[in-house]
Design a protein around this nucleic acid. Sequence first.
DNA 1: CAGTGGTCTAGACCACTCG
DNA 2: GAGTGGTCTAGACCACTGA
Lengths: 233, 233
Amino acid sequence: MSQAQINSYQAVQAEIMKRIQGREWPPGTLIPGEMELAEAFGCARATVNRALRELAETGILERKRRAGTRVALNPVRKAVLDIPITRHEIESRGAAYGYNLVERTRAGPTPTVQARLELPADADMLHVSCMHLADQRPFQFEDRWVHIPAAPGILEAPLDRLSANEWLVQEVPYSHGRILFSAANATPREAELLEVAEGSALFIVERTTWLACSPITFVRMSYRADYSMVTEL
Amino acid sequence: MSQAQINSYQAVQAEIMKRIQGREWPPGTLIPGEMELAEAFGCARATVNRALRELAETGILERKRRAGTRVALNPVRKAVLDIPITRHEIESRGAAYGYNLVERTRAGPTPTVQARLELPADADMLHVSCMHLADQRPFQFEDRWVHIPAAPGILEAPLDRLSANEWLVQEVPYSHGRILFSAANATPREAELLEVAEGSALFIVERTTWLACSPITFVRMSYRADYSMVTEL
DNA sequence: CAGTGGTCTAGACCACTCG
DNA sequence: GAGTGGTCTAGACCACTGA
């Protein structure tokens, strides 16, 4: 026998990674087909398929019908980012969560918000902004616009106690969204709320969500410069 | 019959999503078991399993053995981030890629670099920094430290023409890494290189990679504030 | 048009965990 | 201990696509 039994998809992945990392299969290599690997490993093709499919999803392999599977030459690696509710993020860091409603106004969208949500200027919206605190210290400033017809209950939501994010997550399903990460200098208002110097760099996350083609909400979240978002790959 | 044939895993996913979005299954609902769904949809359990497993991976469902599958109450949604090579990112935006080597020095690590890579102060390292340009304009400043014993060929790499990133990706495999996103105010040097005002907010990405337990490289990439990273969910 | 990956099926065994 | 999801198998058909 030339090869011990490798009959779990994770074992197959480990073996493939071992060969890639050992440069037995350097970038660009065309690796054997699923049937061949299955035979060599002593397992079913479905097992090899799952192993290879998942590695391709992370960008390590590239698969094409007829052409086969090769080790990615220019790996566009995929990293998975967790997007938790802010309260949970704070609590998972072991800090006490605090919440302050800053503003709650029924108003038409600003031009920026209009553009992001693709809504008319006279759309019926709720503008809600709030602070999230970690151990009494400013953690995140949230500035949100909600399209009222898409989430009618929002007008009765107890936003003085609960962030709009938490209310929406439980009450209004969405089908897809877009997240945008960037940096910006703190405006005087943001500086005051986040207790940083004016012009201090902030980490910005903007999120827009839809249900089917109907826009629900746009939110801009600003974090102090000492915040960072982490992911493993 | 109560239900048309839904016999592809994507059709099953669509049906599940439809029921969640239609609030037929609001957050927290315990949904039917795999066998039951398979029978209702007229497909095999494996098909339902794949559909549900993938939805659970994105955070929409939560699955536990014995307890069953429920619609996530506090959805920690997962977003997938593409991490391309900078040259490809620039080219895919339709801009011309440019590259300038700024510095190339063999030196011991700074305290920050030491901490990130968990290396001793006298480790043998190459410090390489460079600018990536899009249509002749500054796009990203890359400041990198490479642990020479982990990537010996780096000393002969043509870093005057090719970024260390591109060379490493093809020549040195890695097993895992950590990425950290944050914001910072531009130092005088960064401001000059990126052609922004001193103190201007920069988007910062720091990446550390290892092969098994052996650190390979640490890189800090700074982007002008007009840059943003996007992902869909 | 032939060979690759993509998927589905029916059945089985297993591991975990909740009641 | 029983029931759920987690996985593997052997076989089959299909869609795509590059030679």
